[in-house]
Simulated assay, not measured.
Amino acid sequence: MSRLSRRGFSLIALAALAACGVRKPQIKRYFGPKVTQVVVYKGQRHMYLLSGNTVLKSYGFGLGFQPVGHKQFEGDGKTPEGLYFVDRFNPQSRYHLSVGISYPNERDREYAAQFNVNPGSDIMFHGRGPEGNRLAQGKQDWTAGCIAVRDDEIEDIYAMLQPGVPVMIHA
């Protein structure tokens, strides 16, 4: 094999290997009614995206590894409860795609400060990403406090939500 053809073969092989890497998430577009709120019921493991009083979509989900109770400290494995807002979007998330909520709010920070601990951060709606096999093993609640849906579902949620949408998380 000549030097030129070896180089060409190497480039083709590298391109093929790169194509086998992590799947880039599909960023969908949404043209339906505006989502005006997200309502999450932790106990029922059900979330609703609403426009006014109309349910546009609903999803089942997994929670933090200690799902009962309000998140208070970093590492407690709980998902927060209360009123928060969509505040960021991450198309490069390790968990396929993610949509952040505004935890911790001022009340959460003040509570944690009483105990001189970190309240935690980076609470998201996200896909399963590389952790998805845990669900296949029967572990519904596996996150550090986030709300996890299937990868195809987070694609819809990511497209439908806008910054500032209220997120009400109930026990």
Rank of each mutant, 00 (worst) to 15 (best):
F73Y: 14
F89R: 00
S102C: 00
F61G: 10
L14A: 15
F73N: 05
N116H: 03
G52K: 01
T143M: 02
H170E: 15
G132M: 08
S102K: 02
H46M: 08
I101H: 01
V149W: 11
H126V: 05
A113C: 03
Q66S: 14
M124S: 03
L63T: 13
G77L: 03
H46E: 03
G75L: 09
G138H: 11
A171Y: 04
V117N: 01
Q137N: 13
Y111K: 00
Q114S: 10
Q72H: 05
G145D: 00
Q92N: 15
M47T: 04
F125D: 00
Y30G: 07
Q37G: 07
F85Y: 15
P163N: 12
K57L: 12
P33F: 00
Q137D: 15
L49P: 06
A159V: 08
D152S: 12
F31Y: 11
V167P: 02
K139E: 14
I157F: 02
R107K: 15
W142L: 05
V86W: 05
V165L: 11
I147W: 04
I169D: 06
P80V: 08
Y95H: 14
A13I: 08
Q26F: 08
G69T: 06
L50N: 11
R109F: 07
H170V: 09
I154K: 01
E74Y: 14
G32S: 12
V40E: 13
Q26K: 14
E131A: 15
K28D: 09
G75F: 11
G132C: 10
I123G: 00
V35R: 04
I154N: 06
P104L: 02
F31A: 13
L50D: 06
V35D: 07
G52I: 00
L4F: 08
Y30W: 12
P119N: 06
A148K: 10
F89H: 00
N53E: 12
E74K: 14
E131I: 06
A136G: 09
D122V: 07
R23M: 12
T36K: 03
G120H: 07
L50Q: 11
W142R: 10
Y30A: 06
